[in-house]
Amino acid sequence: MRLLLRSAACGAFACALLQGAPDEASAQLADHQYTSAAVEAGSRLYVSECALCHGPQGDRVDGVDLRRGQFRAVQSDDDLRRIITVGVDDSRMPAFDFSAAELDAVVAYIRAGFDPEGVAVRIGDPARGAEVFNEAGDCSSCHRVNGVGPRTAPDLSDIGAIRTPASLQRSLLDPYTALLPINRPVMALTREGEMIRGRRLNEDTYSVQLIDSNGRLRSLVKEDLVDFEISRTPTHEPTSLSGDQVADVVGYLLSLRGIQ
């Protein structure tokens, strides 16, 4: 018995992975400040000028994780430009004599989460982002943060530590290509007629473990189900928030780093 909706969509996988899905909103956001050519140029400059100290993943300096947007003092892109240009007193960060275009390129690469094919991400104000998250964005009606909110959608308490800025932005702007397969909404109908909706935690050939829409842990044996479907549609649409609001939400999410 074949219960799974097996995606025949390997072709679609390729699309998701390869095109980077520049829909209108992301184009506005990304190219608002940096072009993808700048990101690419930045990747080369980073490797030759920055990687020696910051490391290939940007995490080799204590307290700094460039790829994930974690800095000691930097908030805005202008902060970044200033520190690269003048250096930091009493630290090992020297001043670099970059042209304006080179500066833009390096900042773009850092903001793209070190993905040379990615889009540059503007990171806004975390406090404003928290407001948007809870109100205009309506994120908190499904996502839980630091013990508050439902468990229906993935808990975001440490999302800033495990995702890149580009990946977070993509989840807001283009949930169709950003959604991790394990997080796809599932629907199961038991022999007894119970309809269970939820989100998978684990699955194997014969069973599936999930959190149902009531926040309960359920382990279902596939043999006992009359229907089991995995939706390819994410639970939320591409956001209708403004570019500034998206930047703020990304800033807020990046500030969520779990318990220390």
Binding site: S7, A9, A16, G118, R163, T164, T177, L180, P181
Partner: peptide, 9 residues
């Protein structure tokens, strides 16, 4: 490895 979403395991 080809994955359905960027950065997916």
């Amino acid at each position: 490895v080809l994955t359905p979403a960027p950065g997916a395991p």
